[in-house]
Design a protein around this nucleic acid. Structure first.
Length: 570
RNA sequence: GCGGCUGUAGUCUAGCGGUUAGGACUGAAGCUUCCCAAGCUUUAAGCCCGGGUUCGAAUCCCGGCAGCCGCACCA
């Protein structure tokens, strides 16, 4: 099918439309209409149920704006701030700072105008074809803003929700009673100033993520529920190979998947995908090949879905090692470590440099403290056998004679050890998932469109119609609608147009079933319940409607047909 | 950001320098209708934006914006 057909349906029926349309639109931004908002909400609610309710991860809500140091630490600032030039001849892009290497002291620190002037003066040409180059452009994929007035601090819209969880590791660890594994999740918006947003919901500038950051002991990356699911099979495309079905335990045993925890969250992702109605024949896990994996990631798998745009990444599940937490530990100075108690306290003896304060105090007076701190940080081997050591403090150089310190054995009793936790990160793109769900649910036969959404995610769980809007049928139908709504089940009442048209409207927006009040209802209190996918109807007592629709809405049944199993056809 | 193609009601579309921009579907109001987009009446809604050429522009030209395709980018 064409993506345009589906986007047209989405506009017509209120799932989504381009944002700021009356002002000409803005690429990379979409509004969710009433049905889209509901579908999105339902997808997120199910994810929350799996990750927060079932797995016990902690949900956080962090700010969308963060100050510069956060992204300095995470690497986003440098990774996103590169300057590029393009060749006017061959079209190839080059890092402008690399071309200016050697021509200027610090090419990364100057403005693009300055850099452009230098490249111009030195007549730098394309290294490939010797063609002329464009002026340097800065590709910063983060949206920048200013925090506060006057000499405001630079701030950025977060490009992922993840950093909010990394910087809060200590809180998460403490709230989780200082045990590993422990994890947090965050659902929310993220922003990337894409150079060229394309493909509808696939590449947006403002989008929605559902991310989990799960912290592990580096040597124990498994999950309590792993054993219960390890025999399940996933469609895996390892390292450029074709898709094969493989059980979790086989994949871990063969080192196809690097550890049990990663395998577990891949399985959870697969289950989520099927629950919300993605077509199992059109999804797969593709492993990142070495050259596309971020340098710090140990293993990374994408859940991909086949769409009109080709195979699209919906979820990335990565073992990020200790990279992120380590980075924030180093930049912030905060102690972002976990602590593991030894079974028996251990005595550790090691060599340390011990300053002799009595000697140093006489020699260095007020500088003694700073010098002693530097000494303590040094490795014993670096000073062993030397007569003196040169140390710089506050820009001044000092020569510290060996009489000022000694190397001693110090025995420390350790009841455990601190370590930087490793992180496994399942990162879900909500908008892409929602789009893939719509596409996989879409079918057209003889110009008749049906969205076969799962009851779990469908915006309306049931349509409620009077066959005729008179003779009291409409009042009964309105009462039924009321009782569904008051039970928290989204239903849609409609009495306009022919009954067929009303069914068609519901089929087109993915409503799994329709309840119709007819003349027989007035005699025996039964109504018809119509299955969207088969168009079949059963009769049931109007008193059974709420519970039956609830089953469909809760996804306890894979399809309306299941919920109607065992019921007599009219 | 580069190149190609495109832009007419909510959707699909007619228009090819000259009346009041036409139709279909959808929407709304009503009639009719005893289960799958039926019919009838009424009704709402449009030339992406800005310049230019011309007596006259939806139509031709330029710029912007947006969409599609390809390239590049996608931590």
């Amino acid at each position: 099918m064409e993506s345009q057909e589906l986007l047209s349906l989405c506009r017509r029926r209120g799932f989504l439309w381009p944002a700021y349309d009356i002002y000409g639109g803005l690429a990379g931004f979409y509004d969710y209409g009433p049905l889209g908002a509901s579908l999105k909400h339902n997808i997120e609610a199910h994810w929350r149920r799996l990750y927060v309710f079932d797995e016990g991860l902690q949900e956080l809500v962090c700010p969308l704006i963060a100050p510069e140091p956060v992204f300095k630490a995470s690497g986003h600032l440098d990774a996103f701030a590169d300057m590029y030039v393009e060749c006017k001849g061959c079209g190839e892009s080059h890092r402008a700072d690399h071309l200016a290497e050697g021509l200027v002291d610090n090419p990364e620190a100057i403005s693009e105008e300055e850099l452009g002037r230098i490249l111009d003066e030195k007549a730098v040409k394309c290294p490939l074809c010797k063609g002329d180059l464009t002026a340097p452009r800065r590709f910063n994929l983060m949206f920048k803003t200013a925090i506060g007035a006057g000499s405001a601090k630079p701030g950025y819209m977060r490009p992922e929700t993840a950093q909010g969880m990394f910087v809060n590791f200590s809180q998460i660890y403490r709230h989780g009673r200082e045990k590993l594994p422990v994890g947090a999740v965050q659902l929310g918006r993220a922003f990337r100033n894409e150079i060229s947003p394309r493909q509808g919901l696939v590449r947006l500038r403002e989008f929605h993520q559902m991310e989990a950051e799960i912290f592990f002991h580096p040597e124990r990356k498994t999950w309590p529920r792993y054993d219960g699911v390890k025999s399940h099979v996933l469609p895996l495309a390892p390292n450029g190979a074709a898709v094969t079905d493989m059980s979790l335990e086989d994949a871990v045993a063969s080192k196809t998947i690097i550890n049990e925890a990663l395998a577990y969250f891949m399985w959870l992702t697969y289950r989520f995908a099927l629950d919300i109605g993605l077509n199992p024949k059109r999804i797969r896990f593709r492993q990142h090949e070495r050259n596309e994996m971020a340098h710090y990631a140990a293993d990374c798998w994408d859940l991909e879905a086949e769409t009109a745009y080709g195979w699209v990444e919906l979820v990335g599940i990565a073992d990020r090692g200790c990279y992120d937490v380590q980075a924030h530990l180093r930049h912030s100075g905060a102690d972002l470590t976990a602590f593991e108690r030894f079974e028996q306290p251990r005595e550790i003896t090691r060599e340390v440099i011990s300053p002799r304060f009595d000697v140093m105090g006489k020699l260095f007076k007020g500088d003694t403290k700073a010098l002693a701190e530097k000494l303590i940080e040094m490795a014993p081997d670096a000073v062993r056998g030397k007569d003196e050591v040169a140390i710089e403090v506050n820009g001044d150089s000092f020569t510290v004679p060996s009489s000022c310190y000694e190397i001693i054995d110090r025995t420390e009793k350790a009841s455990g050890e601190k370590f930087v936790p490793h992180v496994i990160e399942p990162s879900y793109g909500v908008d892409r998932i929602l789009y893939a769900v719509l596409e996989h649910a879409y079918s057209m036969k003889d110009e008749y469109v049906t969205l076969s959404l799962e009851g779990l995610v469908a915006p309306f769980k049931a349509g409620v119609f009077p066959l005729m809007s008179r003779d009291g049928l409409d009042e009964v139908a309105q009462e039924l609608h009321e009782s569904l709504m008051s039970n928290g089940i989204a239903a849609h009442y409609d009495e306009s147009g022919s009954i067929g048209r009303r069914y068609a409207r519901m089929d087109e927006v993915g409503t799994p079933c329709c309840v119709t009040v007819d003349y027989r209802t007035m005699e025996d209190g039964t109504v018809t319940l119509r299955n969207r996918d088969t168009k079949e109807q059963v009769r049931l007592s109007r008193n059974e409607v709420v519970e039956t629709v609830r089953k469909i809405a809760e996804g306890t049944h894979r399809s309306p047909s299941d919920a109607l199993d065992g019921m007599k056809v009219v």
